[in-house]
Nucleic acid binder design. Structure first.
Lengths: 235, 235
DNA sequence: TTTGAGATGAGCGATAATCGCACGTATAGT
DNA sequence: ACTATACGTGCGATTATCGCTCATCTCAAA
């Protein structure tokens, strides 16, 4: 099994690091990559620890509900994860949901809210359009580099101009939205606009993805309106 | 430590437990209860560990993106949590979203999907109605005992009848839905129906919550239809 | 049914990771 | 400016963890 590409590269100074906790988290991340569940030995090889270690970790994780074993005795992520996720930026989750749904339905495309995390962009909220024949399956929590995809470009366009930035960023800064095609997913078309809260910088963006290019002018207007709506809701 | 001659094999086992991992998880859960963030010393007292211990744990958690510190240096849950939550029953998350949204809009009430976890019920998916003056703020990942609230009663009503079960359960089994009032939240009214997948038992339910009782016959029909729709989507 | 291969759960000693104290520094409040 | 509170980091003693081992269990094939 390929290892998880860790988005948070550890500095060479391994000063503050807890090995046991690290192992436990790697168990969780390994399970996250295999939604159908993993068996004990598969897990052990996946995280590179001996079975007995994983066994004890699973005991603690299970007791906290972060891991549960399905009917086939395979281990999978437990519902306590959802409990935790409900506490991640609850303001955004509640405030942005309704505008995103309207955006998704009006454009007929999958709408999403992306947040900056280090030098990567994470899709924090994804809403698929209700009545659409084929929509893009955009998984919650997807990560890409900021420099790729309309969502990241939109966030970068909200910053002060930099010398060697991509031309798309300058263009997005002028127009107020960014467009990308095939950068994240083959053949996918995306359009996004940065969210500007009343104070500070949210380092966030709203956007839509579709399987084929949409009416850029029309969609851009809707996306920017949604971004403005959400921005006004955020302090 | 003094228990030597144990006449009965102890019912509860403190078998496999990892203290460090346990501390780390308790940090996460403490942060989940304080969405506005916690400072280092607050965290230390919250989990009952010394600051230096929490410090090292936070290092590992931050490196994995599970914890991030806001602009005021307070620690809060990070976006990697959302990454993990996207892998918890992804099938349910994608399949049930659209039906729940229709249910929420048609009834004007908050719609939710609840899953059984041990002897508790967890709200796994919550959708608030788009155009509603006042809706119930139902937090994702909320837990209650199965025996309380319409969602839990609905799940119990899908099981085989038991001798001393609450009358509401028998009633729900006859009617196909359950109603409760004020059991979870003061003054809140809830109606739920069990989800019956094509095979096995999902141990799940769909429901709505409102601040005041709604038209029971009408809403019950909509909720049961939604439960059936979702049930057909699940293998 | 018997047999056997593979996976699982648990006991236990050596070792390495963790704990908790101490000290030096940064920040806020008066 | 000065005090008080909170923060970040070394370091030794101790403890929790690691990884070996063996007994038990599941399931498939003979």
């Amino acid at each position: 099994m390929a290892d998880v590409a860790d988005p948070h590269p550890e500095p060479e100074r391994a000063t503050a690091g807890s090995k046991t906790l690290d192992n436990g988290i790697r168990v969780l991340k390994a399970l996250a990559q295999h939604p159908r569940g993993l068996t004990m030995t598969e897990l052990a090889t996946a995280v590179g620890a001996h079975r007995t270690v994983v066994y004890r970790l699973l005991g603690t994780l299970t007791r906290h509900g972060l891991v549960a074993q399905g009917p086939d005795n395979r281990y999978q992520l437990g519902l306590a994860i959802i409990e935790l996720s409900g506490a991640v930026r609850p303001d955004l989750q509640t405030l942005a949901q309704a505008p995103l749904r309207e955006l998704a339905d009006e454009t007929g495309a999958t709408a999403f809210l992306s947040l900056l995390d280090g030098d990567e962009v994470v899709s924090t909220l994804v809403v698929e359009p209700l009545h659409a024949d084929a929509h893009v399956a955009y998984r919650l929590g997807t990560r890409h580099p900021v420099t790729l995809g309309s969502a990241g470009l939109a966030i970068l366009s909200a910053r002060a101009p930099r010398a060697n930035e991509r031309g798309e960023i300058s263009l997005a800064r002028e127009r107020g939205y960014s467009v990308s095609q095939g950068e994240i997913q083959r053949g996918a078309w995306g359009l996004a606009a940065p969210i500007r809260p009343r104070s500070g910088d949210a380092e966030a963006s709203v956007g839509v993805v579709a399987l084929q290019p949409l009416d850029e002018v029309h969609v851009a207007r809707l996306v920017m309106d949604t971004a403005e709506t959400i921005g006004k809701l955020i302090p």
